[in-house]
Each structure stands twice: as structure tokens, then as C-alpha cells.
Design a protein around this nucleic acid. Structure first.
Lengths: 207, 207, 207, 207
DNA sequence: TATGAATGAGAATTCATTCAT
DNA sequence: TATGAATGAATTCTCATTCAT
């Protein structure tokens, strides 16, 4: 009798919503914000145009949501990887491992965050700036620790973190263009870790 | 007198064409490829829409031309700066100096070249990829030299060059966001140079 | 016991149907036919969209039903007021009193009936025309009576009724815009009655 | 050489703009604001959709403009007619004559003002209220004069003007529905004038 | 009966591009 | 050469209506 809400229906709705967001991430990642059309997204999600507007208020809002969620997921994974280790070399390596994993298994995430639609969507500017800031912070915090422990010589840790973040992004973006990224992953991580440790003049001095 | 026609007419024509390209650089840099409209460009150049189509076949072609020219100018300046020095530290520093100069005095150039979000337009993606490739080469060549001379230990110079390019881009992009970039320029260059030299384990060994 | 089924079920059904029509009157009155959406109506009635289509075949049909019912109620009240009196001045005054009462206590009814802007939807235009016709008739009938009794001089009673109807509508619409319509009601009715009696050159001649 | 602006071009542009506004008046008058589509308008004007947006910013702005202009034209004609006479009966008659002329020869004007899209377009509400106000003023001013000269007994001239305005509108709207309005015009005007003079208890007393 | 997710035709608006002058 | 009016395909978004549950 009547209609039972918050049962299967609820779950199904959430599932569809999620499916549509997945589809949207891929479309946005591939085409960029402006070139991606609502039709592209609903086609990818295999629903009608109206369905899009049932779940999301408009293209821009969806994109910003998506960017936020994606950034949150990405930064969370990175942060957790870094915090799971206690010494700088392992922290950097673990962070890079997490980064590379995402890049390989969810390339759209990286595409969206690094290429996406920056410069296009005004309301995205802040989101993007905030993302860069948090990303840089993830790398900077271990550097500050290391500075405190005298494991790296005095230096502008902020600028170093910017440089590392930029370096990592670029190398991993190139890794993604490789025909078989997975085969290169381990080596890339090792090299980048060494590159980073040398760049900040790390030495396991202390103790 | 191998010089071509070049009377007033030609000069005027070139002047108008140049004005439009100048305007276009700024418009594209500010809004990104898709959000920039032909009307934006001709308004900035103070000509009529029809005039645009007299000089350029279409929007995409203009952008490609523009990107090529801008990349050529930028890479040329960088390359020249690097080649004007003989030892690695100076090469890197000179290159960074050139990069920073352009970033400060022609920020639109840097914005245009680094702006992403041109996904789904093949010809634009190619241009961007080609630019990255050439940029990385500029940094890689001195590294290869240094490798040959034993000034840096064996390493994947290609990957190192990628990392350096990414690091430089990121730091300089942040420098541009600074309220008074010029005041920070010298220090940034010094730091980045040291960062780079450490990263590739440079030592002035030889001779 | 000629009464039909009428158990709880029927009453509940009618209740819901009625709630939706009530809501619809207000929504249509406020926004006009085109701007009012089904969602507006079901939201106001606190039912689901599907429920709307269980009770009504479509938007247009609902509006027509609604308009008919509302017109029927309105005209009925007016007619009854007029017929409850035997002499023209009292008939006009009673009619106006009924009109003003509805306007003040059910402004949506008046809004709905007088709202135009339903051009291009034939069935709605018909309804509106029919309503005007019946309204004019209500005023015209007493005039014809008065003509017969020689209480008003020969005149085109149809045209006079149109004029009176228009005059009454306009003044009452303005009354509704007044901050406190009720306080002005009595005076307005008196004035309008006198206006009308003078306009048709009424004199209590006979007997 | 080059392009000569503000010549034939200018005139042509204005002509086309006017033609489009004419077309729009008719479409809006016939269908009402919401039901009228841009396509309807451009089809009536025999231009492409884009052309509409070259001349007007959007549908709503055009409609409001149109309403304003139309109201200005209508009220101007009425006002002038009324002011061209010195005694009340003639003023009313001349005003009605002008009104009827417009109604017959430019029925769309009357449709737009009286039926148009009231209640639909929020930004139109004020325009419509202002129009009613000015219309009522046109009738009220002669009444005030007559009051001053003792040609009509003390009465609320404002309310009387509202009533007259409403009466005139209604009768003329019905006149327009007549198969051959022109044939009825003279009689209608005469009757309405008498109706009005009686309603306000006019007598040529004074002097 | 009642629900609300899903649909898609249709409306407004933008913008690259053309072409008569 | 230069102009800008004109075009219409493409895009975003709305909303009446359907239907499985």
C-alpha cells in the first residue's frame, strides 16, 4: 500500500546519483569544463537530459561539487599515506605511491584536478587555489618536521613544497601518457623520491 | 634588397593583424580558449568582427597560431638564456631569470601557455604537448651535457628535466600571485637554482 | 437513502482532491496559468506529483474545472444576492456587497477570474468569455426588469450591463490594493451603487 | 572604400528594429507573454532567431519596452484628444473616440495593454499599475475641473474615474469582439458618453 | 491509491561564421 | 580592406506527463 520510501528506492537513487557523478567526472576530465556538454554527461550515464537536472541544479554547481569531492578524496588519500610513515623518505615515497596509484587507477581524478576546467569557471578559481594550497601543505608539513629535527638544512620550506608539488605533478602527468604506466610506476616513484630528498638536502643525521 | 614589398599598406596590415593577436593573447589568457569569444577579441583590438575573419580563418586556427608564436617566443628566450652560459648553475639560473622576466612583464604569455582546459580540441592539445616537450628539452639538454662531463651522477635526465620543469612552473605561477612579484624574483631564482642543483646532485667536480 | 457510497474512503479522496484544487486556485491566481507549474500546486497541496495526475488528466483540464467551479461559486453568490432583493437599488447594492465580500475574504477567487493572459489556449479563453457573459447577464437582468417597469428610460441594457460590470471590476480591483480594504468596503459599495443608478438614469417612479 | 555607417545602413537597421517590434506586439497581444515564443516573433518578422538577440537583449526586456512604448502611445493619444476640448461632454466623447479608433485600427495595442501578460511578468507589474494609474488620471482630471465649476455635484472623483475607466475598457473590449466593430463605433461612443455623464450627474449648469 | 524518479519535447540564449555593402 | 547585420546550429535548462513500484 502506498509507496515505501527510504528503502530500495533510496538506495537506487543514491546509486544513480553516484553513477552520474562518475560519468560526469570522466566527461569533464576528458573534455574540460566548457567543451563537456550536459548531453555528453547524460549519454555517458545513459539517462535522459531531464534526469541530470533532477539530480543536480546545473552544470556549474555539479562541476564545483565534483571538483571539491575529487580534491577531498585525492588529498585525503595523499595525506593519509604521508601520515602513515614517520620518517621523511618513507613519507615522500608513500605519498608518491598513493599519488601514482590514483593516477593509474583513476586517471580521471588527476585529469580533473590538474587539467579540468581551471581558468574557465569563475567559481572554480577559489576551489582550485584551495586545492593547490592543501596539496602544497601536504608536502610542506613533513619538511617543517624535518627542519625541526635538523634533518634538512634551513630553507624556505614553503617554496620547496611548491617546487616538489609541481615536480611531482608534471612527472606523473607524463607517466600517464606512457603506454603502460604501471610498468614504470615503481621506478618513477623511486627516482622522484630520490630527486626530492636531494632537492631538499635531506640527510638522516639526527640521533 | 631581398626585402619584400613592405610598403605602408603591408605595415598597416601587419599592424592590425598584430593588434588582434596581442588582444587575443590577453583574452585567451584571461578567459581560456572556450570562454573567450571572437567578440571579446575584436572588442579588445578595437576592430570589427568581419575584420577578424579577414585575417584569420577561424578561432581555432588563431589560437594555434598564437600558441605557436607565443611558445616560440617563450622557448626562444629561455633557450637563448640557457645557451648563453657554459656551466650548469649559470645555465639554470639564466634560464630561470628569463622565465621570471617573462612571467613578470608578460604574464599573459605564461598564462596562455600554462592554461589547460583545452581538452577535446585535438589541435590545441597537440600544441600544448609539443610546448611541454620543447620546454622539457631545454632543461634536459644541459643535464645531458653535465652527465657527459660527470658533473652530475648517472640519472634519468629526461625524468629529471620533467621534474624541474614542473617545479619551475609551479613556483613561478605562485610568484605571479604574489602582490609584488618583482620584489621576490631574485630570491626565488636563487632558491630555485639551488633546489635544482641539489635535486640533480650537481657538484662542480671536473677540472 | 438515495445517498451514494460516501464512506471514509470517498471522503478522504474528495478531501485530497479538494485540497489540490484549493491550492491550485491560489497558485493560478498568484502566478497566472502559464507561470504556475504542477509542482507549485502539488507542493502547496502537500502531495506528490503523481497524485495530481490521479485526480486530474492534465493542467489545462484542471484549470478549466477550477475556473468553472470558481466562476460558478462567484456568479452563484452574486446572483443569489441580486435575486434576494426586489428593487433595483437594493439589487445592485446586494450584488456589490457579495462581490466585495468575496474579493476581501477570497481574493484569490477574484484574481483567478479576472486574470487574463491565457491567450493562445482556446479552452481557457472560452471559459473566460463565458464567465464575462454570465457576469454581464447578472447585471443586465435587473436592468431589463427595470426597463419593463419604466424605472429606467429606454437604453441598450446590454451595453449598460457591460459598462457596469467593467466599472465594478475596476473599482473593486483597486479596493483590493488598498492597505485595509475592509475599512473602505461600505463606502465603496455606496458610491458604486449611486454611480450605477445615476448611470442608468434610475428613478423610483412607479407606484 | 571601407564601410559607411549611419547612412542607409542606419536607417535600415532602425526600420528592421521597428518591424520586429511591430511583429512582437502582435504576437504578444495574440498569445500573451508566456505563450509567445521568440520563434513566433522572429517568424512573424521573417528573420532568424539570432537577429532577435541582435536587436533586443531578451524576451522580458523587449516585452517591458514594448508595453511602455505602447502605453505611452495610447495614453498620449487619449490625453491629447481629451485636452483638445474644453467642455466635459466633448472631452469624454473625444477621449472615447480616440480610444475606439485605436481599438479598431490597432487592436493589438489594446490587447497588449489590457490582456497582454499581466500577472506573469514580475517586472511588468509596476508598468501595468503605472498604466492604469495614468489612464485613470486622464479621466479624473476633467472630472476635477467639472467639480470646480460646479458642473457635477461633490463626489469622489478618483473612484468615479476608476469606474469610468473600467466601464470604457469593458465595453470597448466587447466592441472588438463584434464582427464589424466600426459599424458599432459611433453608437457605442454616444451611449458610453451619455452613460458617463449620467453616472457623474453632469449638468451644464454653471455660468 | 499514492509516490517520485525518469523522460524528452520545447523554450531561451549564445556565438562562430558569412556576406552584402 | 573593413564593416557589422544576419544567420542558425548548438547549448542549457524547464516542466508537463508517464509509469514502475
Amino acid at each position: 500500500m502506498a509507496y515505501r520510501s527510504s528503502d530500495k528506492t533510496r538506495r537506487k537513487k543514491d546509486a544513480k546519483r553516484t553513477a552520474m557523478m562518475q560519468a560526469a567526472v570522466h566527461v569533464f576530465a576528458e573534455k574540460g569544463y566548457h567543451a563537456a556538454t550536459i548531453r555528453d554527461i547524460v549519454t555517458a550515464a545513459d539517462v535522459a537530459i531531464g534526469t541530470f537536472y533532477f539530480y543536480f541544479p546545473d552544470k556549474e554547481t555539479l562541476f564545483v561539487h565534483l571538483y571539491e569531492e575529487t580534491a577531498h578524496f585525492f588529498l585525503g588519500a595523499l595525506q593519509q599515506a604521508v601520515l602513515s610513515r614517520r620518517v621523511l623518505p618513507e613519507q615522500i615515497q608513500a605519498g608518491l605511491q598513493a599519488y601514482v596509484n590514483i593516477a593509474i587507477y583513476e586517471p580521471a581524478v588527476v585529469q580533473l584536478l590538474l587539467v579540468g576546467g581551471v581558468g574557465s569557471v569563475p567559481s572554480l578559481m577559489e576551489q582550485h587555489a584551495a586545492f593547490r594550497e592543501r596539496l602544497i601543505n601536504i608536502w610542506q608539513r613533513p619538511l617543517n618536521e624535518a627542519l625541526l629535527h635538523g634533518q634538512i638544512p634551513p630553507q624556505n620550506s614553503r617554496r620547496a613544497a611548491e617546487a616538489l608539488a609541481g615536480a611531482f605533478d608534471e612527472v606523473i602527468l607524463h607517466l600517464l601518457n606512457h603506454p603502460d604506466p604501471a610498468s614504470e610506476a615503481a621506478e618513477t616513484i623511486t627516482e622522484l623520491t630520490r630527486f626530492a630528498l636531494r632537492a631538499i638536502a635531506y640527510s638522516e643525521s639526527s640521533k
